[in-house]
């Protein structure tokens, strides 16, 4: 049944630091690369080299401009993917049981063999985390790289989601958000990690960290002392005389 598990023992998820994300799109590429060959059908592209290319992606990076009232505008890069919500609306709407949330680690997955491609789960998700694969007609979504994180054939440092592994600035963190002692939980506590669209009542597992306050330069220039040039010798005498006339 596509009822939600009452409580999962661990809740694996991501913590995304908007302060350090530089918007390089490496996580988008790494995600697409890994999920082309791993869990389920590959992420297809339509007309990839033509005039109207499109394709399935599980992770997209947006860019927003923030214009504070009293400071310079700021660009915030914003990766968007499945938040593996505790009250995932995409799971309960599924008529076939293809969409489910795992009891053992809270990952929201799609059993593609049972998916009829009705698209109702994508409608139910406020975050646009699900995309229907146009070739296979089944719903694709972030698997939290379930085929990497438990994969004992991989070296230990690779047992994390592809997006986290590839991020060159360390803006993405992976871990157990139910364990208050875990590194990600500590990070969320220290930086005030928050939920996206809390008013939608989805209780996301993934947390976002806001950009830190930037240093502001003093009003006076650092070069001010150097700009006060005192002439000496003849030029100094001339300066004094001309100043008195």
């Amino acid at each position: 049944m596509t009822c939600l598990p009452g409580r999962s023992e661990r809740t694996l998820g991501l913590v995304i630091d908007l302060d350090t994300c530089v918007g390089c799109q490496a996580c988008v590429t790494a995600c697409k690369g890994w999920n082309d060959q791993g869990y389920g059908v590959p992420l297809s592209d339509q007309n990839p080299y033509g005039s109207t290319p499109s394709g399935t992606f599980l992770n997209r990076v947006h860019s927003y401009q923030v214009q504070p009232a009293d400071a310079a505008p700021m660009i915030v890069n914003f990766p968007r993917s499945c938040l593996h919500c505790t009250d995932a609306p995409c799971v309960t709407v599924c008529p076939t049981g293809a969409s489910y949330k795992r009891v053992e680690d809270g990952i929201v997955l799609v059993n593609e063999d049972a998916c009829i491609g009705c698209g109702l789960c994508a409608w139910a998700c406020p975050y646009g985390a699900r995309e229907m694969d146009a070739d296979a007609g089944v719903m694709k979504k972030c698997t939290l790289c379930v085929d990497r994180i438990y994969n004992e054939n991989l070296p230990e440092e690779d047992r994390e989601p592809a997006c986290v592994r590839t991020c060159p600035t360390g803006a993405r963190h992976f871990g157990d958000l139910a364990d208050p002692q875990s590194a990600v939980s500590q990070l969320v506590a220290a930086r005030g990690g928050y939920d996206l669209m809390p008013e939608q009542g989805t209780r996301p597992v993934n947390k976002y960290l806001a950009p830190r306050k930037k240093d502001r330069p003093d009003k006076a220039s650092l070069l001010a002392p150097l700009l006060d040039i005192q002439a000496t010798g003849f030029a100094g005498w001339l300066d004094r005389v001309l100043g008195k006339i």
Partner: peptide
């Protein structure tokens, strides 16, 4: 609310 950047100033899509 969608980005959590609401209280920081005027917010718009850059790219």
């Amino acid at each position: 609310t969608a980005t959590g950047l609401g209280g920081r100033g005027q917010l718009s899509v850059f790219e």
